[in-house]
Amino acid sequence: MSAPAIDARGVDKYFGRFQALDKLDLTVRTGQVAGFLGPNGSGKSTTIRVLLGLLRADSGSVRLLGGDPWKEAVSLHRRLAYVPGDVSLWSNLTGGQAIDLMGRLRGGLDTRRKKAFLERFELDPTKKARTYSKGNRQKVALVAALASDAELLILDEPTSGLDPLMEAVFTECVREIKEEGRTVLLSSHILSEVEKLCDTVTIIRQGRTVESGTLDDLRHLTRSSVHAEVEHDPAPLAALPGVHDPEIDGHRISFSVDHAQMGAVLSQVTSLGVRSLVSNPPSLEELFMRHYGDELAALNGGTEGGERA
């Protein structure tokens, strides 16, 4: 198998005394769509800037498309396209001019693809950039990236300004990119988007990788949530093995349950006389919450307690 498209190991990055990245690991295999998740300020954009050679890692190793992103930035950048989280354009240029300029700076642009993506994203390329909304500026950067023939697309929260219709178009486009065998790194905190698109997920928190693997791998690590209303007192359920965070309100109970114990717990619920039962499969959101909610807060002790609520 060829070298991974992105391979960062043990990356540290300090800004003054503030440690932005702390032994961060991130691997994306060629041809994969990789989700890169983390709350605001967790170091997603810093990681991306290290990958782009805009920041220099203080320690650790970073390989991008088989090269050193700091030393070989120019040649590597011919092979990748980047969409920043907050796109700032040249206010006196039109969107179309900016797209062409970006393409030319990268070393060429397929005008047919540009036209096709402009139509799909319903972007008017004749408007001056200063009249564009955040979403439209993002579309400019997206069209420039998607219309390129880059092997690797690095997208930093690319849909944060898009409306739901455009998000759907974006999802579609990324699927096509994947079918073409290209690699995508998609940083996001929109979990449904990552769930829909990504083969693998890396979750970071405070500059550290806390979880990474395929979505199925990660699902095994988590629990489903159950909300039930029963005829008898639901209290005994709380004591069952595998049941977590029970909340009882009269005849109603909510809890989360380990997948291994799901069968046993449900039969107990049934035996209490079910009036209603809702069970949600573990969503990425719960995965996410698990890492930013109780587990890590507990791991980090009281010092992080302030961030929990």
Partner: peptide
Amino acid sequence: AARPGPAGAGRLLRGVTTLQLNQ
């Protein structure tokens, strides 16, 4: 009011120097 402009970049706008000059 801002008027619409060209839908694509002209021949000149193809590198960082011409971009600087344009700006």
